[in-house]
Simulated assay, not measured.
Amino acid sequence: MSESLIVITGGPGAGKSTLLEHLHRHHGLNTVEEGGRAIIREQLASGGDALPWANREAFCQAMLAHALTTRERALDAGGLWLFDRGLPDVLGYARLCGLPIPEELETAARELRYGPTVFLAPAWEAIYRNDAERRQDFAEAQRTATIMSELYAELGYRVLELPRGSLEERAEFVLAECPL
């Protein structure tokens, strides 16, 4: 059931991955890693160019494939799953970058649903850091968070903004709103 698939979205560097790791480690919840980071690591290791700074269209296609696969695996496994981004995030990325949007992506983002509530990690300059996989500046992180919030709302999801608080406060906020 798609209600058991919960998305945490937002801009890069807003604490999504850290929050999901905490929810997995301390609360035993199933989590799905962000596709973009996994793809960047794989591409850098293999010398590929499906990277946001090299070939954005190939990167977008790889993220779509990852999102489709991980969603299906979670549904097959059953239980509650928390996702570091969902299919609509791939559509948001394409819009943000001005990429052509394949019909498959548009259809998947609209029809392959997640739970009705999506958590938005707002752009938060105090915790934002660049690293080998995150090269965007803070302004792009803000634009990304805005696009994701607008897109999920456009698709009929209830978007709840995570508090700018401690990791435990954010975790408790998610736990209070999740269908556990």
Results as ranks from 00 to 15, higher is better:
R143D: 11
E103H: 07
A109N: 08
I40A: 00
A45Y: 15
L162Y: 01
L80A: 11
E3V: 15
C178H: 07
A153W: 06
P102R: 05
M148S: 09
A121F: 08
M63C: 14
R164S: 05
P100L: 07
L120F: 03
G48Q: 14
Y114G: 05
V118P: 05
G78E: 13
P116S: 08
I6V: 15
E72T: 10
L64D: 08
G13S: 09
E169C: 13
R113G: 10
L87A: 10
L75D: 08
E133C: 12
L23D: 00
I6W: 04
F173T: 03
G28F: 15
D84W: 04
P12W: 11
E3C: 00
R110K: 01
R129S: 10
E154A: 12
G115K: 03
V118N: 04
S149M: 07
G28P: 02
L29M: 08
V32G: 03
E172P: 01
I147V: 11
A126K: 02
G86N: 10
A141Y: 09
G115I: 01
S2T: 05
R135I: 05
F138P: 00
D131R: 10
A14P: 12
T146P: 04
C97L: 15
F59Q: 11
L51Y: 06
M148I: 07
E169T: 11
I6Y: 01
D76L: 13
Y128T: 14
E168F: 04
A176N: 15
H22Q: 13
E103D: 00
L80W: 13
Y152W: 01
E106M: 05
G47W: 14
S17H: 03
L80P: 05
E103I: 05
R170P: 04
P52T: 07
G10S: 06
M63V: 13
A139C: 03
I127M: 01
L51T: 13
E169P: 05
A141E: 04
G98Y: 09
I39V: 15
A50R: 11
L20D: 05
I40Y: 06
D84I: 10
R110I: 03
L19S: 02
G86A: 11
A14E: 04
L20G: 06
A145E: 00
E106T: 11
E161W: 11
